[in-house]
Computed example of a mutant assay.
Amino acid sequence: MASCPRRDVNHIAHKKDPFARYKSNTRTSLRRRKRSGNPMADYDRLPSDLRGWLSQAALPWSPRSVFRVWRSAMKTYENDREAVYLYMSELEAKKLKKEAKKIWGFE
C-alpha cells in the first residue's frame, strides 16, 4: 500500500520555520538575542541560593543577566541576601506588570 503525502495545510509553512505554529504563544516585548557561550555552564557557576531563586522566577532570566542584577544588588544592599532577593522579586513583578499591560492590555 502506497503512503499518502501529508495533507496538513501548515506543512509547507513549517518546512521553512518549524516553530511557526508556536509564535503566537510567545508574544513579548522582551528583546531576543542569540546566545553566546554555554548558558548551562553559566547557570552552573551561579551561587546556589541564586539558582534557587531563579528556579522559582516567573520570567525567563538568562544566567548572565540575573547574575549582573544580583551582583549590583549585593553591592547596593551590602550583601544582605534577604534584601537582595526581595529587590529582585519586586523588579520581576514590575516587569511582569509592564508585560501584562503590553500583551493583554490590562494590569
Rank of each mutant, 00 (worst) to 15 (best):
M1Q: 08
A2N: 13
S3I: 15
C4F: 08
C4S: 14
P5T: 05
R6K: 09
R6P: 00
R7E: 15
D8G: 09
V9W: 07
V9Y: 10
N10C: 06
H11N: 07
I12R: 12
A13K: 10
A13W: 07
H14T: 12
K15D: 11
D17R: 10
D17M: 07
D17T: 02
P18A: 10
P18R: 10
P18E: 09
P18Y: 06
F19I: 06
A20L: 15
R21T: 12
Y22S: 13
Y22R: 05
K23C: 06
K23R: 13
K23P: 03
K23M: 10
N25T: 08
T26C: 14
T26P: 01
T26R: 14
R27S: 09
R27P: 01
T28V: 08
S29N: 10
S29R: 10
L30I: 09
L30M: 15
L30K: 11
L30W: 12
R31M: 15
R31I: 15
R31H: 15
R33F: 15
R33N: 15
K34V: 08
K34Y: 04
R35C: 15
S36V: 00
S36T: 05
N38I: 04
N38E: 03
P39A: 00
M40W: 13
A41S: 07
A41C: 03
D42I: 07
D42G: 05
Y43R: 09
Y43I: 06
D44S: 12
D44M: 08
D44N: 14
R45E: 11
R45M: 09
L46D: 04
L46F: 02
P47G: 02
S48I: 07
L50Y: 01
L50D: 00
L50Q: 02
R51K: 14
R51G: 05
R51A: 02
W53Y: 10
S55R: 13
A57S: 13
A58N: 13
L59Q: 04
L59F: 02
P60N: 10
P60V: 04
W61Q: 06
S62A: 08
P63T: 01
P63V: 00
P63C: 00
R64E: 08
R64T: 11
R64D: 07
S65Y: 03
R68T: 07
V69M: 12
V69G: 03
W70N: 01
W70P: 00
W70K: 00
R71Y: 05
S72E: 11
A73W: 00
K75D: 14
K75M: 14
K75F: 08
T76Y: 02
T76V: 07
Y77A: 04
Y77G: 01
Y77N: 07
E78N: 13
E78F: 08
E78D: 12
N79V: 02
D80Q: 06
R81M: 02
E82M: 11
A83T: 11
A83I: 05
V84N: 01
V84R: 01
L86R: 15
Y87C: 06
S89W: 03
E90W: 06
E90D: 13
L91A: 10
L91D: 09
L91Y: 14
L91T: 14
A93V: 03
L96I: 11
L96Y: 02
L96R: 06
K97L: 10
K98A: 15
A100G: 03
K101M: 11
K101Y: 05
K101R: 12
K102G: 10
W104H: 05
G105S: 00
G105I: 00
F106I: 01
E107G: 09
E107A: 13
E107Q: 12
